[in-house]
Design a binder for these strands. Structure first.
Length: 643
DNA sequence: TTAGGGTTAG
């Protein structure tokens, strides 16, 4: 090996950025080494795999190279397989077959199959499997294992298992792949059976079980496996934290995160995104802020997924200004998730116009929106009452971006029309959808009927819902609400009676508030304890002050029963969000923002009370309900009473 | 100089 070759390889081994890779490339060129397969291959590997945002350069390198070898093709295929456009990896494989005399080897198949798995393209997978067969590589251990994963990803567990059973000498990785395949196709018993059959288990085998159980929502089985594991690593911990967060068990996620810290294990970016997601769901703002401090000091904020999770945490904890700050400080690497999170954050806080502006800025920056971006954008239009703009984006999504609307997009459109009071249009839209509407679509429309008090349509929609999901108590409650608004107490009673007869129970409303990093939750009408006593006591005092100072009278139309006025007043006065606010006023120091998270939508009376409290007590209150954020300040709500 | 299985945000 020549000294200049050695120098180039040394420089490449130290290279960490695209800028220095380009400088080294210039040096390589000057020394006539650009056609040297070893040096060019190493440079290509660096750009395709090791350095982020250098894939484009890697493609150019391969294009300019006179006769690329299998290694060079494989390297680009590998890089593209893990990129946001894995289908390009497949195109490179096809190009290699057509334009070169180089034959594909086991590496080519392993990497391309990975790309196929990421594309979920069974057709391409079958073709590739056929080609591997022709080259006698289908029984290769690595190719075989990747084939199992590919079939599982593409939803064909039968082929995955068949390949496994036909393999002469599967190793532990192959076993792990087949267990994962069973979980991925929803066959938990099959996965457990395979796990028991495994001749050797390693740490990953156990982690596969944890992941499988948590994804299937079997948290107790996951907890059991976690306790039985002979060894645990950071992936085991992250899997548990993320698993609990994804299943809405944020207290458990916090608990595991604290335990991880107690055991002196350094959190990784996955456990951090998991715990941030738990903060976002619980509305744990103070805990989120502490995590933010840690992320800044430790450098984790440089990781795009972590920054994205933090944007969502701040948004969903009611502080869109902090979310914006995190978004603005992401100087490099903002991806479609970062933009979408910020758009969604602005939208849920009622900044519809700003969300739309940001969408245009995103397009100008060359970031391609995806289906979820459009869900956020349509949500922004819906909550800001921008019907025409919403319709325009719905068309643009398909025509300009080629994104086929999914059921969620149709749901947004029904919400857009319904929320704005265009109920007939919403109904017509739902009836003419090319996909048959699901219960969520009809429920959205029923919700709109309840906002606008349309009894006739509500009955029609409820009839549809009863065919699809007859035992949903929430739908009965919504219909009963519509009757209550119209003063049809007889119908309210009938609806309630039918709920009782069918033994349906109403989802209890709960609200949470964070005080000194501890989350307190309140449920209306639950047995009193020390905490609720404080809340009730303060609430009585607040109500008296509101009546005396601003002449507050309870609005009782959202109470469902046909009961006496006094009882109705009593019932609304105990709503969980009122208790949480009262507790916040009693416990938080002056000048602090009161942040409430609620599982259901806020009722009209609570909405009025929040406005009045913000004025009389001169405090800011944020309430995150099931639908959006409300910021109460000086007697006004950010939703402009449109929710 | 390249592999295959497990955890990541909207």
């Amino acid at each position: 090996m020549s000294s200049s070759q050695q120098l180039c390889l040394f420089l490449l081994s130290k290279c960490r950025s695209l800028k220095s890779a380009k400088q080294i490339h210039a040096h390589v060129y000057k020394n006539g080494l650009d056609t040297d397969p070893l040096v060019a291959g190493k440079l290509l590997l660096l750009c395709a795999v090791s350095i982020s945002d250098a894939l484009h350069y890697a493609r150019c390198l391969l294009q300019q190279f006179p006769n690329p070898d299998a290694f060079m093709y494989n390297t680009l295929i590998r890089g593209l397989a893990e990129s946001e456009t894995p289908s390009d990896s497949l195109h490179t494989f096809v190009k290699m077959r057509r334009q070169s005399i180089v034959l594909p080897d086991s590496f080519s198949f392993a990497f391309t199959l990975k790309a196929v798995a990421n594309c979920r393209s069974l057709r391409a997978g079958l073709q590739l499997h056929g080609q591997a067969l022709c080259h006698g590589l289908d029984s290769h251990l690595f190719v075989g294992t990747t084939l199992i994963s590919m079939y599982a990803e593409c939803g064909n567990v039968h082929s995955a298992r068949q390949i496994f059973e036909e393999m002469s000498d599967p190793n532990v990785v192959t076993w792990n792949a087949v267990v994962t395949a069973s979980f991925r196709c929803g066959d938990m018993e099959g996965a457990e059976h395979m796990f028991k059959r495994m001749p050797i288990r390693n740490l990953t085998s156990w982690n596969v079980m944890l992941a499988g159980y948590t994804k299937a929502g079997k948290l107790e089985s996951a907890r059991q496996a976690f306790s039985e594991m002979p060894l645990k690593d950071d992936v085991s911990w992250s899997t548990m934290i993320v698993g609990f967060a994804h299943n809405g068990l944020f207290d458990e996620a916090f608990g595991f995160f604290r335990q991880l810290q107690r055991e002196g294990i350094r959190p990784n970016e996955v456990s951090l995104t998991g715990v941030l997601s738990a903060c976002a769901q619980a509305g744990a703002f103070e805990f989120g802020k502490i995590l933010h401090g840690f992320l800044q000091k430790s450098g984790f904020l440089q990781i795009v997924s972590v920054s994205n999770a933090l944007i969502d945490t701040y948004s969903r904890c009611g502080n869109v200004a902090m979310a914006r700050l995190v978004f603005q400080s992401m100087l490099v690497g903002r991806n479609v998730v970062s933009w979408t999170s910020m758009i969604a954050g602005l939208a849920m806080h009622g900044h519809g116009e700003e969300a739309i502006e940001l969408f245009h800025e995103m397009e100008e920056c060359g970031v391609t929106p995806d289906g979820i971006t459009f869900i956020s954008l349509l949500y922004a239009c819906s909550h800001a009452g921008l019907v025409e703009q919403g319709c325009a984006y719905f068309s643009k999504m398909k025509i300009v971006h080629g994104i086929e609307p999914a059921i969620e997009h149709y749901g947004c459109m029904v919400d857009l029309y319904g929320r704005a009071g265009k109920l007939e249009k919403a109904y017509e839209f739902a009836c003419q959808m090319p996909i048959s509407p699901n219960a969520i679509i009809w429920r959205t429309l029923l919700g709109a009927c309840s906002i606008h008090g349309n009894v006739e349509l509500a009955e029609l929609v409820k009839a549809r819902l009863s065919e699809m999901d007859p035992n949903n108590s929430g739908d009965h409650v919504l219909l009963s609400n519509v009757y209550a608004i119209a003063g049809k107490w007889k119908e309210v009673t009938t609806t309630r009676r039918s709920m009782t007869e069918q033994r349906m129970t109403k989802t209890p409303g709960w609200s949470m508030i964070e005080i000194d990093k501890v989350m307190y939750s309140f449920v209306a009408g639950k047995n009193p304890n020390v905490v609720t006593e404080v809340a009730y006591h303060k609430l009585t005092e607040i109500m008296l002050r509101l009546r005396a100072e601003v002449g507050y009278e309870p609005q009782v139309r959202s109470v469902l029963h046909d009961i006496e006025q006094e009882e109705k007043e009593d019932s609304v006065s105990k709503h969980s969000e009122k208790l949480a606010v009262a507790f916040g006023i009693a416990k938080l120091s002056e000048g602090r923002i009161i942040r409430i998270v609620k599982n259901l939508r806020i009722c009209a009376d609570c909405h009025t009370v929040m406005k009045l409290i913000s004025k009389v007590y001169q405090i800011e209150i944020t309430v995150r309900d099931r639908s959006r954020f409300h910021l109460f300040k000086d007697g006004v709500c950010s939703c402009r009473d449109y929710w």
